[in-house]
Design a protein around this nucleic acid. Sequence first.
DNA 1: TGTACATCAGTGAACGCGCGTTCACTGATGTAC
DNA 2: TGTACATCAGTGAACGCGCGTTCACTGATGTAC
Lengths: 197, 197
Amino acid sequence: MVEQEPSGPRARYRQQVKAEVKTHAWQQIADAGASGLSLKAIATQMGMTAPALYRYFANRDELLTELILTAYRQLAEAVEADVSDADPPEQQLRRIAAAFRQWSVSHPHRYLLLYGTPVPGYAAPPEATTLATRIFRPLVNAFDRAGAADAFARSVVFWTRLHGVLSLDLAGHFTGMGIDTERLYDDEVNSAIAAPE
Amino acid sequence: MVEQEPSGPRARYRQQVKAEVKTHAWQQIADAGASGLSLKAIATQMGMTAPALYRYFANRDELLTELILTAYRQLAEAVEADVSDADPPEQQLRRIAAAFRQWSVSHPHRYLLLYGTPVPGYAAPPEATTLATRIFRPLVNAFDRAGAADAFARSVVFWTRLHGVLSLDLAGHFTGMGIDTERLYDDEVNSAIAAPE
DNA sequence: TGTACATCAGTGAACGCGCGTTCACTGATGTAC
DNA sequence: TGTACATCAGTGAACGCGCGTTCACTGATGTAC
């Protein structure tokens, strides 16, 4: 099922260039948002001409898709990495929440690309949905092991509460309100772990 | 303090044209996002040439600012309209939450413009912060009247929980997950009204 | 070890497009006498 | 009631800009004998 990756020196070089393109792409998204992503500008930054990038990406949307899928995978790995099957479920939930926040605060534009206002005119590939579900799984598992009657519903509430705090924080909507966002986040984690109501 | 609005026939005509420009602007934001807002395209839609619009708005950002301020005012009015001082505080909170959701679902792009991913390169005017606070006030009042120890903190939690559900819903991130978003919203309203933890 | 060939990264010119914004102007509308 | 004048909405041409994408090409690199 895993695609056979060619691995000669040319293939290695290709991977390097693709990686560099993506680095510049993230920088652009940080500066100008997802709709400001421009192949031509990236090429210029890399000291190349724009058509050269079409050796690496069929078009602009394909690059955007790769960025989104990569971001999902990163976030999924970050969330999964800290969770041990041996831990009690409540601790698993706290670790998931902490990893989720850590990754999001470290990569605010990636987070907003995944969970923020959709990019107009861009349709995410089906694979994105699969990856979004993958991030959900450790959550459902933990609630399930904790004996929650409806682990899925509890997971959804968990998710929306974290997202409520995180998204307003990352988008800067708490600015000037004198809110301790980290504490607010922790309080919401606690409330979502506690009883259903 | 209120600016003296001229009110001759010319002034009336101006108001009509400005209103029509804004109508087309909202349509564009719905279609192409806030960064797709284009004076030239609006002019074309109205059967005019682009420079004509500079009679009405100094530039693109000024139009965007007016849209944002208008949206804040609409939302504030919607939230305030349904709240009666005579109601018990708990009912006030439910009414605020209902009005908030109603307005947001009716105008998803307006909501995302106010509370979603910021428009890159655009700095909101100070007046926006004032209006954002105004929307907060009925909430704080209600919690205060309910005898909450820290009405502000309770209001923040109230807000983030509603926003958590609403923003994911409006951005389409619940699609295909089989979630009853209205019920989820109501549950979160209940949880935010109930005890601090 | 050396040569002939195939692969393929990158170039340069070009396409059509849409954008914000300026400027000098025309001509209709409202106002003052 | 009529005329002269001022206001101002809208035009058309132009500016410089950046975008995605195509195409025929050059020349370096890797591979097969």
